[in-house]
């Protein structure tokens, strides 16, 4: 029997990734507690860069991020990525100067778009 799913390929949401400027970033802090904060987000040709206040997050740590759009059921879409952060050069510009920038080496990326709800075998 076929299954109904909202899952889509990440490339399907390219416009969301290109337009998004904020991601919700989750990590586990040194006490073992889950933590989350908003991060500056840049996506370009599959590379994800994240800007956070200096000192907020350490490189090498494992994180999860989500970029989402929409409020109502048929409008909801999001990309979720998990992986490790490595220090990165900022994307450029004065506004990035007060942030520490990282590149996310994502090993798991999932995307969903309720407007593309469909059956799959």
């Amino acid at each position: 029997m076929s299954r109904v799913t909202n899952r889509v390929g990440v490339e399907t949401l390219r416009d969301l990734l290109e337009g998004a400027r904020t991601a919700a970033l989750a990590y586990v802090d040194e006490t073992g507690a889950v933590q989350a904060l908003p991060a500056a987000f840049r996506w370009r040709e599959g590379r994800i860069r994240l800007g956070v206040p200096i000192g907020a997050v350490r490189g090498g740590g494992r994180v999860a991020i989500v970029v989402d759009e929409g409020w109502f059921w048929w409008d909801l879409r999001a990309v979720l990525a998990r992986g490790a952060l490595a220090p990165s050069a900022p994307p450029g510009g004065a506004a990035a100067a007060d942030l520490a920038w990282f590149e996310l080496a994502a090993d798991r990326v999932t995307a969903w778009d309720y407007s593309r709800l469909h059956e799959e075998p």
Binding site: A20, R21, T22, A23, G51, G92, G93, L99
Partner: peptide
Amino acid sequence: PGAAPDYADTTE
């Protein structure tokens, strides 16, 4: 931090 103006991202 994502609220910085887009024009600052001059490499894109």
